[in-house]
Design a protein around this nucleic acid. Structure first.
Lengths: 238, 238
DNA sequence: AAGTGGTCTAGACCACGAG
DNA sequence: TCGTGGTCTAGACCACTTC
């Protein structure tokens, strides 16, 4: 789904890097050459290259050129900004999702804060486990603002809520705040997960914002220690 | 240290948000108004606003305006892109750094890969612990390419290596790749840290790149479970 | 209809690296 | 000296929200 000119150039070059048509450690054509060959202005090329750089595909080196990087780019599926389904597919591992709870509730104080809603606003609670190779290793406890997501079903929760939000409801996810900590296991963890004796668990807390600045979702993603992996890029003084 | 026009506007507005002069949940002036009042073009204002948005200060809402967000923005000090000293100061907690090892060595296969160097290239090894409230809770094992950082001393390692790199050597940090996992404690962890009986530890692996695409540092930052916290923003299809 | 942010253009000058 | 990416400008049109 291409939105505009610089995005389509970004997709094009990213694709060439992923398929190996553009080789690691080689230089891209210069911005002027790219502008010429894509028939666009240099500023538009620069937007595409900045996207590539922000997503870890290339590094721009002043006065020299842009180099294709050789960095693995995919997280372990951490529920949140990119949908679980999306990341799981890229990582290429078969996950099974099971929905254990799906009902409407009133938010407690904590949820009111996390979702920025008043006490009377209805909230979906969803509890799901993710299973890989016969082991239930992730427990996702999600809370969605009902007003924004009226018709959730078990089928949608088993597939991809994000696809539903974006394709069916036309909502636009803007950004998420993630917080990662390690905590002691709860009885709920022990009930829903195959913990193999671990007494701690990695907790990823997630607040997801729409493009109109409202919070749509708060999720606690609870990962078994030994199966957790998170990868991140950070740029200096972006 | 202001570099250019859009950066100085970014610093200015970020400062106003941090000191509360610009209040949370209020709207910024429009881009046209800001361009006028800062005496610059709209594209330059947009660069500043994009920085604010990427760093979690504001959210831009199409056709409506930019809103000041109310999101806590600081990590627990995770060695890497922003220096430990820098983050520790923002978090406002007193940390003590102790240097346990500082010597030159030849890289093994693993280090050659992580630092992208040949076997004959010398490497600094530095082992440091970070202590807070009387407990040693972080063990940082760092490896720097000696050719790029000739004169390391115990004093520099106790203060801030990054300050030394940037201010003394004029090197420019560009970006870092972080990977977070949880692993079983090693004897080294038990030796250098106050583990309070925990048998697992959070490991943050870090490759830090310069602006000329060479790797300068590989660090393993080992955090006691209960004291680890990591905060991250992610934007959808940036 | 007016104002907003998002995209795009065609120029310009700069500092820096390489030959 | 020439080419590179980094910054900056002054315009333009669009889709969208608000009134």
């Amino acid at each position: 789904m291409v939105k505009n000119k610089y995005d389509s150039i970004y997709q094009d070059i990213a694709g060439q890097i992923e398929t190996g048509k553009l080789k690691k450690h080689t230089k891209l054509p210069s911005e002027n050459e790219l502008a010429e060959s894509y028939g666009t202005s240099r500023e538009t090329i620069r937007k595409a290259l900045n996207l590539l750089s922000q997503n870890g595909y290339i590094q721009k080196i002043k006065a020299k050129g842009s180099v294709v990087l050789d960095i693995g780019r995919f997280d372990f599926p951490v529920s949140g900004l990119t949908s679980f389904k999306e990341v799981a597919e890229k990582v290429g591992k078969p996950f099974t999702t099971t929905v254990h709870e799906l009902y409407v509730m009133k938010p407690d104080d904590c949820l009111q804060t996390e979702l920025k809603i008043p006490a009377k606003e209805d909230v979906w609670k969803i509890a799901r486990t993710r299973e890989k190779e016969g082991e239930r290793i992730i427990l996702d406890k999600s809370f969605f603002v009902k007003k924004l997501v009226p018709g959730l079903t078990k089928e949608i929760c088993e597939d991809s809520i994000y696809e539903y939000l974006e394709k069916e409801l036309g909502l636009n996810i803007s950004f998420a705040r993630k917080e990662i900590t390690v905590e002691e296991c709860t009885d709920e963890d022990r009930k829903y997960l195959d913990l193999k004796g671990y007494d701690h668990i990695v907790v990823v807390r997630n607040n997801v914002y729409l493009d109109n600045a409202s919070v749509i979702e708060y999720t606690e993603s609870r990962h078994r220690l030994d199966k957790f992996r998170f990868v991140d890029f950070a740029r200096r003084s972006r």
